[in-house]
Design a protein around this nucleic acid. Structure first.
Length: 529
DNA sequence: CATGTTTAGGATCGTCGTCC
DNA sequence: GGACGACGATCCTAAACATG
Protein backbone atom coordinates (compact mmCIF):
# COMPACT_ATOMS: atom_id res chain seq x y z
CA UNK A 1 0.00 0.00 0.00
CA UNK A 2 2.46 2.61 -1.05
CA UNK A 3 1.11 6.02 -1.70
CA UNK A 4 2.80 8.25 -4.21
CA UNK A 5 5.16 10.51 -2.37
CA UNK A 6 4.26 14.16 -2.71
CA UNK A 7 7.09 16.56 -2.37
CA UNK A 8 6.48 19.34 0.12
CA UNK A 9 5.61 22.51 -1.76
CA UNK A 10 8.49 24.46 -0.31
CA UNK A 11 11.02 22.07 -1.79
CA UNK A 12 9.63 22.15 -5.28
CA UNK A 13 11.72 23.87 -7.87
CA UNK A 14 10.38 27.14 -9.22
CA UNK A 15 10.50 27.23 -13.03
CA UNK A 16 11.26 30.10 -15.34
CA UNK A 17 10.94 30.19 -19.12
CA UNK A 18 14.60 31.02 -19.83
CA UNK A 19 15.63 28.19 -17.55
CA UNK A 20 13.31 25.74 -19.32
CA UNK A 21 14.76 26.83 -22.65
CA UNK A 22 18.23 26.06 -21.35
CA UNK A 23 17.16 22.53 -20.43
CA UNK A 24 15.43 22.18 -23.77
CA UNK A 25 18.57 23.15 -25.66
CA UNK A 26 20.69 20.87 -23.53
CA UNK A 27 18.32 17.99 -24.23
CA UNK A 28 18.46 18.74 -27.94
CA UNK A 29 22.23 19.00 -27.96
CA UNK A 30 22.55 15.71 -26.09
CA UNK A 31 19.94 13.59 -27.83
CA UNK A 32 19.44 15.33 -31.16
CA UNK A 33 15.68 15.45 -30.47
CA UNK A 34 13.42 17.97 -28.77
CA UNK A 35 11.91 16.88 -25.47
CA UNK A 36 8.32 15.67 -25.35
CA UNK A 37 5.93 14.69 -22.61
CA UNK A 38 7.34 11.20 -22.47
CA UNK A 39 11.00 12.19 -22.50
CA UNK A 40 11.37 11.26 -18.87
CA UNK A 41 13.46 13.17 -16.33
CA UNK A 42 14.95 16.54 -17.10
CA UNK A 43 18.70 16.12 -16.90
CA UNK A 44 20.43 18.45 -14.49
CA UNK A 45 17.46 18.81 -12.25
CA UNK A 46 16.63 16.32 -9.59
CA UNK A 47 13.37 14.38 -9.85
CA UNK A 48 11.74 16.65 -12.39
CA UNK A 49 10.04 15.22 -15.42
CA UNK A 50 9.27 16.91 -18.70
CA UNK A 51 5.61 16.16 -18.04
CA UNK A 52 5.81 18.33 -14.93
CA UNK A 53 7.37 21.13 -16.93
CA UNK A 54 4.48 20.83 -19.39
CA UNK A 55 1.90 20.91 -16.61
CA UNK A 56 3.55 23.99 -15.15
CA UNK A 57 3.38 25.75 -18.49
CA UNK A 58 -0.25 24.74 -19.06
CA UNK A 59 -1.69 25.41 -15.63
CA UNK A 60 0.55 28.23 -14.45
CA UNK A 61 2.20 26.35 -11.59
CA UNK A 62 5.61 26.79 -10.04
CA UNK A 63 6.02 30.41 -10.91
CA UNK A 64 5.02 30.10 -14.58
CA UNK A 65 2.35 32.23 -16.27
CA UNK A 66 0.24 29.31 -17.65
CA UNK A 67 -1.85 29.07 -20.79
CA UNK A 68 1.02 27.57 -22.72
CA UNK A 69 2.54 24.09 -23.05
CA UNK A 70 5.88 22.48 -23.71
CA UNK A 71 4.93 21.93 -27.35
CA UNK A 72 3.75 25.53 -27.74
CA UNK A 73 6.91 26.87 -26.17
CA UNK A 74 9.03 24.78 -28.53
CA UNK A 75 6.96 25.95 -31.48
CA UNK A 76 7.23 29.62 -30.52
CA UNK A 77 10.81 29.75 -29.31
CA UNK A 78 12.53 27.00 -31.27
CA UNK A 79 10.35 26.65 -34.35
CA UNK A 80 9.57 23.00 -33.60
CA UNK A 81 6.57 21.43 -35.35
CA UNK A 82 3.70 21.09 -32.91
CA UNK A 83 1.18 18.56 -34.17
CA UNK A 84 -1.44 20.04 -31.87
CA UNK A 85 -1.25 23.53 -33.31
CA UNK A 86 -0.41 23.21 -36.95
CA UNK A 87 -1.34 26.08 -39.22
CA UNK A 88 -4.46 25.74 -41.33
CA UNK A 89 -3.67 24.65 -44.89
CA UNK A 90 -5.02 27.06 -47.49
CA UNK A 91 -6.03 25.62 -50.84
CA UNK A 92 -4.57 28.65 -52.61
CA UNK A 93 -1.25 28.06 -50.88
CA UNK A 94 -1.26 24.38 -51.85
CA UNK A 95 -1.78 25.39 -55.48
CA UNK A 96 1.19 27.75 -55.28
CA UNK A 97 3.36 24.95 -53.91
CA UNK A 98 2.07 22.55 -56.56
CA UNK A 99 2.74 25.02 -59.39
CA UNK A 100 6.26 25.58 -58.08
CA UNK A 101 6.81 21.82 -57.89
CA UNK A 102 5.63 21.43 -61.46
CA UNK A 103 7.81 24.28 -62.66
CA UNK A 104 10.83 22.79 -60.94
CA UNK A 105 10.37 19.10 -61.74
CA UNK A 106 8.12 19.15 -64.79
CA UNK A 107 5.51 16.99 -63.05
CA UNK A 108 2.62 17.59 -60.69
CA UNK A 109 3.27 16.50 -57.12
CA UNK A 110 1.77 13.29 -55.79
CA UNK A 111 1.54 11.96 -52.27
CA UNK A 112 4.86 10.22 -52.95
CA UNK A 113 6.69 13.44 -53.81
CA UNK A 114 8.28 13.86 -50.38
CA UNK A 115 8.97 17.15 -48.60
CA UNK A 116 7.57 20.37 -50.03
CA UNK A 117 10.57 22.46 -50.98
CA UNK A 118 8.71 25.76 -50.50
CA UNK A 119 7.38 24.82 -47.06
CA UNK A 120 9.92 23.36 -44.65
CA UNK A 121 8.36 20.74 -42.40
CA UNK A 122 5.46 20.03 -44.74
CA UNK A 123 5.24 16.95 -46.95
CA UNK A 124 3.02 16.13 -49.92
CA UNK A 125 1.93 13.00 -48.08
CA UNK A 126 0.65 15.09 -45.19
CA UNK A 127 -1.19 17.41 -47.57
CA UNK A 128 -2.78 14.40 -49.27
CA UNK A 129 -3.68 13.01 -45.85
CA UNK A 130 -5.31 16.31 -44.88
CA UNK A 131 -7.55 16.14 -47.97
CA UNK A 132 -8.54 12.55 -47.21
CA UNK A 133 -9.09 12.70 -43.47
CA UNK A 134 -10.15 16.31 -43.26
CA UNK A 135 -7.77 18.10 -40.92
CA UNK A 136 -6.07 21.48 -40.70
CA UNK A 137 -9.00 23.37 -42.12
CA UNK A 138 -9.57 21.14 -45.12
CA UNK A 139 -12.79 19.20 -45.66
CA UNK A 140 -12.54 15.41 -45.71
CA UNK A 141 -13.33 13.17 -48.60
CA UNK A 142 -10.98 14.39 -51.30
CA UNK A 143 -7.34 13.78 -52.16
CA UNK A 144 -4.37 15.66 -53.56
CA UNK A 145 -4.92 13.92 -56.91
CA UNK A 146 -8.60 14.93 -57.00
CA UNK A 147 -7.79 18.49 -55.97
CA UNK A 148 -5.22 18.96 -58.73
CA UNK A 149 -7.59 17.36 -61.25
CA UNK A 150 -10.28 19.85 -60.26
CA UNK A 151 -8.18 22.99 -60.04
CA UNK A 152 -5.44 22.35 -62.57
CA UNK A 153 -6.99 19.85 -64.94
CA UNK A 154 -4.35 17.25 -64.15
CA UNK A 155 -5.19 13.70 -65.26
CA UNK A 156 -6.10 11.52 -62.31
CA UNK A 157 -5.02 7.93 -62.81
CA UNK A 158 -7.98 6.70 -60.81
CA UNK A 159 -10.53 8.75 -62.65
CA UNK A 160 -9.57 8.49 -66.29
CA UNK A 161 -12.26 8.97 -68.91
CA UNK A 162 -13.97 5.78 -70.09
CA UNK A 163 -13.37 4.63 -73.64
CA UNK A 164 -16.10 3.48 -76.00
CA UNK A 165 -15.69 1.62 -79.25
CA UNK A 166 -17.63 4.37 -81.03
CA UNK A 167 -15.25 7.03 -79.67
CA UNK A 168 -12.14 5.06 -80.64
CA UNK A 169 -13.47 4.54 -84.16
CA UNK A 170 -14.11 8.28 -84.47
CA UNK A 171 -10.53 9.01 -83.42
CA UNK A 172 -9.26 6.39 -85.87
CA UNK A 173 -11.32 7.89 -88.69
CA UNK A 174 -9.92 11.34 -87.93
CA UNK A 175 -6.41 9.90 -87.87
CA UNK A 176 -7.03 8.23 -91.22
CA UNK A 177 -8.45 11.37 -92.75
CA UNK A 178 -5.51 13.43 -91.57
CA UNK A 179 -2.61 11.10 -92.31
CA UNK A 180 -3.93 8.69 -94.90
CA UNK A 181 -2.98 5.75 -92.65
CA UNK A 182 -4.85 3.88 -89.95
CA UNK A 183 -3.50 4.17 -86.42
CA UNK A 184 -1.56 1.40 -84.75
CA UNK A 185 -0.43 1.00 -81.18
CA UNK A 186 2.78 2.82 -82.05
CA UNK A 187 1.08 5.85 -83.59
CA UNK A 188 1.83 8.04 -80.58
CA UNK A 189 -0.63 10.54 -79.06
CA UNK A 190 -4.28 10.60 -80.12
CA UNK A 191 -4.48 14.06 -81.66
CA UNK A 192 -8.20 14.46 -80.97
CA UNK A 193 -7.91 13.32 -77.34
CA UNK A 194 -5.21 15.21 -75.47
CA UNK A 195 -3.48 13.02 -72.92
CA UNK A 196 -4.40 9.76 -74.64
CA UNK A 197 -2.06 7.60 -76.71
CA UNK A 198 -2.79 4.90 -79.25
CA UNK A 199 -0.66 2.63 -77.11
CA UNK A 200 -2.99 3.16 -74.16
CA UNK A 201 -6.02 2.63 -76.39
CA UNK A 202 -4.50 -0.65 -77.61
CA UNK A 203 -3.80 -1.90 -74.08
CA UNK A 204 -7.28 -0.90 -72.89
CA UNK A 205 -8.86 -2.78 -75.81
CA UNK A 206 -6.78 -5.86 -75.17
CA UNK A 207 -6.85 -6.01 -71.39
CA UNK A 208 -10.36 -4.67 -70.99
CA UNK A 209 -9.59 -1.37 -69.27
CA UNK A 210 -11.43 1.87 -68.94
CA UNK A 211 -14.84 0.46 -69.66
CA UNK A 212 -13.92 -1.74 -72.62
CA UNK A 213 -14.68 -5.47 -72.73
CA UNK A 214 -11.14 -6.58 -73.60
CA UNK A 215 -9.58 -9.39 -75.62
CA UNK A 216 -9.61 -7.45 -78.85
CA UNK A 217 -6.98 -5.38 -80.60
CA UNK A 218 -6.96 -2.14 -82.52
CA UNK A 219 -6.07 -4.03 -85.68
CA UNK A 220 -8.95 -6.51 -85.24
CA UNK A 221 -11.38 -3.69 -84.54
CA UNK A 222 -10.33 -1.75 -87.63
CA UNK A 223 -10.47 -4.92 -89.71
CA UNK A 224 -14.01 -5.68 -88.55
CA UNK A 225 -15.46 -2.17 -88.53
CA UNK A 226 -13.45 -0.38 -91.21
CA UNK A 227 -12.29 -3.26 -93.43
CA UNK A 228 -8.66 -2.37 -92.84
CA UNK A 229 -6.51 -5.38 -93.78
CA UNK A 230 -4.75 -6.94 -90.79
CA UNK A 231 -1.04 -6.45 -91.05
CA UNK A 232 -0.43 -10.10 -90.28
CA UNK A 233 -2.43 -11.04 -93.38
CA UNK A 234 -1.06 -8.42 -95.74
CA UNK A 235 -0.44 -9.47 -99.33
CA UNK A 236 3.17 -10.11 -100.29
CA UNK A 237 5.29 -7.22 -101.50
CA UNK A 238 6.86 -7.65 -104.88
CA UNK A 239 10.33 -6.44 -105.63
CA UNK A 240 9.48 -5.07 -109.10
CA UNK A 241 6.61 -3.03 -107.73
CA UNK A 242 8.80 -1.58 -104.96
CA UNK A 243 11.42 -0.69 -107.58
CA UNK A 244 8.80 1.24 -109.55
CA UNK A 245 7.91 3.18 -106.39
CA UNK A 246 11.59 3.88 -105.70
CA UNK A 247 12.27 5.16 -109.23
CA UNK A 248 9.23 7.42 -109.07
CA UNK A 249 10.50 8.77 -105.77
CA UNK A 250 13.93 9.42 -107.34
CA UNK A 251 12.40 11.21 -110.31
CA UNK A 252 10.27 13.40 -108.11
CA UNK A 253 12.72 14.28 -105.35
CA UNK A 254 16.12 13.66 -106.90
CA UNK A 255 17.03 11.16 -104.19
CA UNK A 256 16.56 7.45 -103.58
CA UNK A 257 14.08 6.80 -100.77
CA UNK A 258 15.21 6.40 -97.18
CA UNK A 259 13.31 4.73 -94.33
CA UNK A 260 12.18 8.14 -93.14
CA UNK A 261 10.96 9.33 -96.54
CA UNK A 262 7.33 9.07 -95.42
CA UNK A 263 4.25 7.90 -97.37
CA UNK A 264 4.63 6.44 -100.83
CA UNK A 265 2.62 8.30 -103.41
CA UNK A 266 0.40 6.05 -105.46
CA UNK A 267 0.37 3.39 -102.71
CA UNK A 268 -2.21 4.39 -100.12
CA UNK A 269 -1.24 3.53 -96.56
CA UNK A 270 2.22 2.43 -97.56
CA UNK A 271 5.32 4.15 -96.19
CA UNK A 272 9.00 3.77 -96.86
CA UNK A 273 9.40 2.77 -93.21
CA UNK A 274 7.13 -0.22 -93.77
CA UNK A 275 9.01 -1.20 -96.91
CA UNK A 276 12.30 -0.89 -95.06
CA UNK A 277 11.07 -2.99 -92.11
CA UNK A 278 9.70 -5.67 -94.41
CA UNK A 279 12.96 -5.88 -96.35
CA UNK A 280 15.03 -6.01 -93.19
CA UNK A 281 12.92 -8.39 -91.13
CA UNK A 282 11.54 -10.49 -93.93
CA UNK A 283 7.84 -9.78 -93.79
CA UNK A 284 5.28 -10.14 -96.54
CA UNK A 285 7.04 -12.74 -98.59
CA UNK A 286 10.46 -11.09 -98.53
CA UNK A 287 13.61 -12.98 -97.55
CA UNK A 288 14.82 -10.47 -94.96
CA UNK A 289 18.30 -9.12 -94.32
CA UNK A 290 17.99 -6.52 -97.08
CA UNK A 291 17.86 -2.74 -97.17
CA UNK A 292 16.32 -0.14 -99.45
CA UNK A 293 19.52 -0.30 -101.47
CA UNK A 294 18.20 -3.39 -103.30
CA UNK A 295 15.60 -1.16 -104.90
CA UNK A 296 18.23 0.95 -106.65
CA UNK A 297 19.49 -1.76 -109.00
CA UNK A 298 17.72 -2.31 -112.24
CA UNK A 299 18.04 -6.06 -112.26
CA UNK A 300 17.34 -8.28 -109.31
CA UNK A 301 20.86 -9.17 -108.26
CA UNK A 302 21.07 -12.69 -107.07
CA UNK A 303 22.25 -11.05 -103.87
CA UNK A 304 25.87 -12.14 -104.28
CA UNK A 305 26.27 -15.81 -103.40
CA UNK A 306 26.46 -16.08 -99.68
CA UNK A 307 29.93 -17.10 -98.50
CA UNK A 308 29.83 -20.55 -96.99
CA UNK A 309 30.08 -20.15 -93.27
CA UNK A 310 32.01 -22.40 -90.99
CA UNK A 311 30.18 -25.05 -88.98
CA UNK A 312 29.34 -24.37 -85.37
CA UNK A 313 28.46 -26.38 -82.33
CA UNK A 314 25.70 -25.69 -79.84
CA UNK A 315 28.35 -25.59 -77.13
CA UNK A 316 30.27 -22.86 -78.96
CA UNK A 317 27.12 -20.77 -79.28
CA UNK A 318 26.29 -21.33 -75.62
CA UNK A 319 29.80 -20.28 -74.61
CA UNK A 320 29.40 -16.99 -76.52
CA UNK A 321 26.00 -16.54 -74.93
CA UNK A 322 27.51 -17.13 -71.48
CA UNK A 323 30.17 -14.52 -72.21
CA UNK A 324 27.48 -12.06 -73.33
CA UNK A 325 25.52 -12.78 -70.18
CA UNK A 326 28.59 -12.32 -68.02
CA UNK A 327 29.42 -9.04 -69.73
CA UNK A 328 26.00 -7.43 -69.93
CA UNK A 329 23.96 -9.24 -67.31
CA UNK A 330 21.46 -10.23 -70.01
CA UNK A 331 21.10 -13.09 -72.46
CA UNK A 332 21.58 -12.27 -76.14
CA UNK A 333 18.69 -12.19 -78.58
CA UNK A 334 18.46 -11.97 -82.33
CA UNK A 335 19.10 -8.22 -82.35
CA UNK A 336 22.02 -8.14 -79.93
CA UNK A 337 24.42 -7.30 -82.76
CA UNK A 338 27.96 -8.57 -83.37
CA UNK A 339 29.60 -11.15 -81.14
CA UNK A 340 32.92 -9.76 -79.84
CA UNK A 341 34.24 -13.25 -79.13
CA UNK A 342 33.66 -14.26 -82.74
CA UNK A 343 34.61 -11.63 -85.29
CA UNK A 344 32.28 -11.61 -88.24
CA UNK A 345 29.46 -13.39 -86.42
CA UNK A 346 26.25 -11.70 -85.34
CA UNK A 347 23.52 -12.99 -83.06
CA UNK A 348 21.09 -12.53 -85.93
CA UNK A 349 23.12 -14.92 -88.10
CA UNK A 350 23.26 -17.47 -85.28
CA UNK A 351 19.53 -17.12 -84.71
CA UNK A 352 18.75 -17.77 -88.37
CA UNK A 353 21.20 -20.66 -88.56
CA UNK A 354 19.54 -22.28 -85.54
CA UNK A 355 16.13 -21.73 -87.11
CA UNK A 356 17.14 -23.38 -90.35
CA UNK A 357 19.32 -26.03 -88.74
CA UNK A 358 22.28 -24.83 -90.81
CA UNK A 359 25.99 -24.91 -89.95
CA UNK A 360 25.59 -28.23 -88.19
CA UNK A 361 23.65 -26.67 -85.35
CA UNK A 362 20.77 -28.52 -83.77
CA UNK A 363 17.64 -27.22 -85.39
CA UNK A 364 15.51 -25.32 -82.94
CA UNK A 365 13.03 -22.52 -83.14
CA UNK A 366 15.44 -19.76 -82.32
CA UNK A 367 18.30 -18.57 -80.17
CA UNK A 368 15.81 -17.83 -77.43
CA UNK A 369 14.56 -21.38 -77.61
CA UNK A 370 18.07 -22.80 -77.30
CA UNK A 371 18.76 -20.64 -74.25
CA UNK A 372 15.44 -21.58 -72.72
CA UNK A 373 16.29 -25.26 -73.06
CA UNK A 374 19.95 -25.22 -72.19
CA UNK A 375 20.29 -22.29 -69.82
CA UNK A 376 16.89 -22.40 -68.18
CA UNK A 377 16.31 -18.82 -69.21
CA UNK A 378 12.70 -17.72 -69.36
CA UNK A 379 11.29 -15.35 -71.86
CA UNK A 380 7.82 -14.67 -73.09
CA UNK A 381 7.05 -17.56 -75.39
CA UNK A 382 8.70 -19.87 -72.90
CA UNK A 383 7.17 -18.56 -69.70
CA UNK A 384 5.64 -21.64 -68.17
CA UNK A 385 1.92 -21.96 -67.68
CA UNK A 386 0.78 -21.47 -64.10
CA UNK A 387 -1.65 -23.53 -62.05
CA UNK A 388 -3.60 -22.18 -59.10
CA UNK A 389 -2.60 -25.27 -57.12
CA UNK A 390 1.08 -24.59 -57.70
CA UNK A 391 0.71 -20.95 -56.67
CA UNK A 392 -1.07 -21.97 -53.48
CA UNK A 393 1.78 -24.35 -52.65
CA UNK A 394 4.35 -21.57 -53.13
CA UNK A 395 2.23 -19.31 -50.95
CA UNK A 396 2.06 -21.93 -48.20
CA UNK A 397 5.86 -22.29 -48.34
CA UNK A 398 6.18 -18.50 -48.07
CA UNK A 399 3.90 -18.54 -45.07
CA UNK A 400 5.89 -21.29 -43.36
CA UNK A 401 9.12 -19.44 -44.01
CA UNK A 402 8.12 -15.82 -43.35
CA UNK A 403 5.16 -16.20 -41.06
CA UNK A 404 3.09 -14.03 -43.40
CA UNK A 405 1.21 -14.59 -46.64
CA UNK A 406 2.71 -13.21 -49.83
CA UNK A 407 1.38 -10.17 -51.66
CA UNK A 408 2.27 -8.42 -54.90
CA UNK A 409 5.25 -6.75 -53.23
CA UNK A 410 6.75 -9.92 -51.76
CA UNK A 411 9.50 -10.17 -54.38
CA UNK A 412 11.00 -13.32 -55.92
CA UNK A 413 9.62 -16.79 -55.21
CA UNK A 414 12.53 -18.97 -54.05
CA UNK A 415 10.68 -22.17 -54.97
CA UNK A 416 10.29 -20.93 -58.54
CA UNK A 417 13.43 -19.28 -59.89
CA UNK A 418 12.65 -16.41 -62.23
CA UNK A 419 9.14 -16.04 -60.85
CA UNK A 420 8.06 -13.14 -58.65
CA UNK A 421 4.87 -12.67 -56.66
CA UNK A 422 4.17 -9.65 -58.81
CA UNK A 423 4.39 -11.66 -62.04
CA UNK A 424 2.05 -14.27 -60.55
CA UNK A 425 -0.37 -11.59 -59.39
CA UNK A 426 -0.33 -9.97 -62.85
CA UNK A 427 -0.98 -13.33 -64.54
CA UNK A 428 -3.89 -14.00 -62.15
CA UNK A 429 -5.38 -10.55 -62.74
CA UNK A 430 -5.11 -10.66 -66.53
CA UNK A 431 -5.97 -14.32 -66.80
CA UNK A 432 -2.81 -15.12 -68.77
CA UNK A 433 -0.37 -18.01 -68.65
CA UNK A 434 -3.15 -20.54 -68.51
CA UNK A 435 -4.88 -19.17 -65.43
CA UNK A 436 -8.59 -18.41 -65.05
CA UNK A 437 -9.37 -14.78 -65.66
CA UNK A 438 -10.04 -11.92 -63.30
CA UNK A 439 -8.73 -13.16 -60.00
CA UNK A 440 -5.79 -11.85 -58.06
CA UNK A 441 -3.36 -13.31 -55.57
CA UNK A 442 -5.19 -11.78 -52.61
CA UNK A 443 -8.54 -13.17 -53.73
CA UNK A 444 -7.07 -16.59 -54.50
CA UNK A 445 -5.65 -16.78 -50.97
CA UNK A 446 -8.93 -15.52 -49.53
CA UNK A 447 -11.00 -18.10 -51.39
CA UNK A 448 -8.72 -21.09 -50.88
CA UNK A 449 -7.23 -20.43 -47.46
CA UNK A 450 -9.60 -17.82 -46.01
CA UNK A 451 -6.83 -15.26 -45.71
CA UNK A 452 -8.02 -11.73 -44.98
CA UNK A 453 -6.98 -8.88 -47.17
CA UNK A 454 -7.79 -5.23 -47.32
CA UNK A 455 -10.58 -5.50 -49.80
CA UNK A 456 -12.46 -8.45 -48.34
CA UNK A 457 -12.57 -7.35 -44.71
CA UNK A 458 -15.93 -8.32 -43.21
CA UNK A 459 -18.42 -5.52 -42.65
CA UNK A 460 -19.20 -4.51 -39.10
CA UNK A 461 -22.70 -3.97 -37.76
CA UNK A 462 -23.79 -2.28 -34.57
CA UNK A 463 -25.56 -5.44 -33.48
CA UNK A 464 -22.49 -7.61 -33.89
CA UNK A 465 -20.23 -5.14 -32.10
CA UNK A 466 -22.76 -4.86 -29.29
CA UNK A 467 -22.75 -8.64 -28.94
CA UNK A 468 -18.94 -8.63 -28.73
CA UNK A 469 -19.10 -5.86 -26.13
CA UNK A 470 -21.52 -7.81 -23.94
CA UNK A 471 -19.51 -10.97 -24.27
CA UNK A 472 -16.35 -9.13 -23.26
CA UNK A 473 -18.13 -7.71 -20.23
CA UNK A 474 -19.51 -11.10 -19.20
CA UNK A 475 -16.08 -12.70 -19.32
CA UNK A 476 -13.93 -9.96 -17.82
CA UNK A 477 -16.33 -7.89 -15.76
CA UNK A 478 -15.16 -4.78 -17.60
CA UNK A 479 -16.32 -2.97 -20.69
CA UNK A 480 -13.65 -2.90 -23.41
CA UNK A 481 -12.09 0.27 -24.79
CA UNK A 482 -9.94 1.01 -27.82
CA UNK A 483 -6.80 -0.27 -26.12
CA UNK A 484 -8.33 -3.57 -25.02
CA UNK A 485 -6.59 -5.55 -27.72
CA UNK A 486 -8.16 -8.51 -29.51
CA UNK A 487 -11.89 -9.09 -29.58
CA UNK A 488 -12.45 -12.36 -27.73
CA UNK A 489 -15.18 -13.62 -30.03
CA UNK A 490 -13.41 -12.44 -33.17
CA UNK A 491 -9.68 -12.95 -32.77
CA UNK A 492 -8.93 -11.39 -36.15
CA UNK A 493 -10.42 -8.07 -34.97
CA UNK A 494 -9.14 -5.56 -32.43
CA UNK A 495 -11.13 -3.07 -30.41
CA UNK A 496 -8.82 -0.43 -31.84
CA UNK A 497 -9.84 -1.33 -35.40
CA UNK A 498 -13.52 -1.18 -34.42
CA UNK A 499 -13.00 2.22 -32.80
CA UNK A 500 -11.20 3.56 -35.87
CA UNK A 501 -13.91 2.15 -38.17
CA UNK A 502 -16.57 3.91 -36.09
CA UNK A 503 -14.67 7.20 -36.13
CA UNK A 504 -13.79 7.30 -39.82
CA UNK A 505 -16.70 5.36 -41.25
CA UNK A 506 -14.99 2.19 -42.47
CA UNK A 507 -16.30 -1.31 -43.02
CA UNK A 508 -19.97 -0.47 -43.05
CA UNK A 509 -20.13 2.15 -40.31
CA UNK A 510 -21.08 5.78 -40.69
CA UNK A 511 -18.28 8.13 -39.62
CA UNK A 512 -18.29 10.30 -36.53
CA UNK A 513 -18.89 7.69 -33.86
CA UNK A 514 -16.58 5.96 -31.40
CA UNK A 515 -16.47 2.89 -29.25
CA UNK A 516 -17.01 4.99 -26.12
CA UNK A 517 -20.07 6.72 -27.56
CA UNK A 518 -21.56 3.48 -28.82
CA UNK A 519 -21.12 1.94 -25.40
CA UNK A 520 -22.64 4.92 -23.62
CA UNK A 521 -25.64 4.95 -25.94
CA UNK A 522 -26.27 1.21 -25.68
CA UNK A 523 -25.81 1.03 -21.95
CA UNK A 524 -28.02 4.07 -21.52
CA UNK A 525 -30.68 2.46 -23.67
CA UNK A 526 -30.59 -0.96 -22.10
CA UNK A 527 -28.56 -1.07 -18.94
CA UNK A 528 -27.09 -4.44 -18.31
CA UNK A 529 -24.82 -3.89 -15.38
C1' DC B 1 -9.54 11.05 -26.12
C1' DA B 2 -8.26 14.37 -30.13
C1' DT B 3 -5.39 15.56 -33.82
C1' DG B 4 -2.34 14.61 -37.32
C1' DT B 5 0.94 11.55 -40.01
C1' DT B 6 2.62 7.40 -41.95
C1' DT B 7 2.45 2.59 -43.32
C1' DA B 8 0.67 -1.66 -45.62
C1' DG B 9 -1.10 -3.39 -49.33
C1' DG B 10 -4.81 -3.93 -53.13
C1' DA B 11 -6.11 -2.10 -57.78
C1' DT B 12 -5.19 0.13 -62.05
C1' DC B 13 -2.83 2.30 -65.87
C1' DG B 14 0.61 2.71 -69.23
C1' DT B 15 5.22 1.90 -71.19
C1' DC B 16 9.01 -1.00 -72.36
C1' DG B 17 11.51 -4.90 -74.18
C1' DT B 18 11.50 -8.76 -76.89
C1' DC B 19 9.33 -12.26 -79.35
C1' DC B 20 6.91 -13.73 -83.62
C1' DG C 1 3.27 -4.31 -86.60
C1' DG C 2 0.99 -7.02 -83.05
C1' DA C 3 1.41 -9.86 -78.76
C1' DC C 4 2.21 -10.04 -74.09
C1' DG C 5 4.75 -10.38 -69.71
C1' DA C 6 7.54 -7.38 -66.57
C1' DC C 7 7.57 -3.40 -64.25
C1' DG C 8 7.20 1.46 -62.37
C1' DA C 9 4.14 4.72 -60.85
C1' DT C 10 -0.09 5.98 -58.82
C1' DC C 11 -4.22 6.30 -56.07
C1' DC C 12 -6.94 4.54 -52.78
C1' DT C 13 -8.73 2.21 -48.16
C1' DA C 14 -7.83 0.59 -43.71
C1' DA C 15 -5.20 0.73 -39.95
C1' DA C 16 -1.21 1.76 -37.13
C1' DC C 17 1.59 5.11 -35.07
C1' DA C 18 2.93 9.59 -32.75
C1' DT C 19 2.00 13.28 -29.95
C1' DG C 20 -0.49 16.38 -26.94
Amino acid sequence: MSRPKVKPKALRHVFSVPEILEWVDAHHARTGAWPGLDSGPVTGILAEKWRNVDSGLRLGLRGLPGGSSLAQLLAEQRNVRNSGGLPVLRRKQILIWADAHRKRTGAWPTSESGPIAEAPGETWRAVDGAFRVGVRGIAAGSSLAQFLALRRGRRNLRDLPRFTVRQILAWADAHHKRTGTWPTTTSGPVVDAPGETWSAVGVALYNGRRGLPGRTTLAQMLAARRSVPMSSHLPPLSLPKMRIWARAHKRRTGNWPTPTAGPISGAPGMTWRKVYNSLREGYRGLPGGQTLAVLRTERPTESAPRPRRSPLTDEQVLAWADAHHQRTGRWPHSRSGPIPEAPGETWRAIDRALHAGRRELTQTNSLVCLLAERRDWRTHPYTPQLRSRQILAWAAAHHRREGSWPNQRSGPIPEAPGETWRSVDDALRLGTRGLPRRVCLARLLAEEYGIRNRTNLPRFTHARVWAWLQSHFRRTGKWPHAASGQVIDAPAETWKAIDVALRHGYRGFAAGQSLGRLLAARRGAKPRG
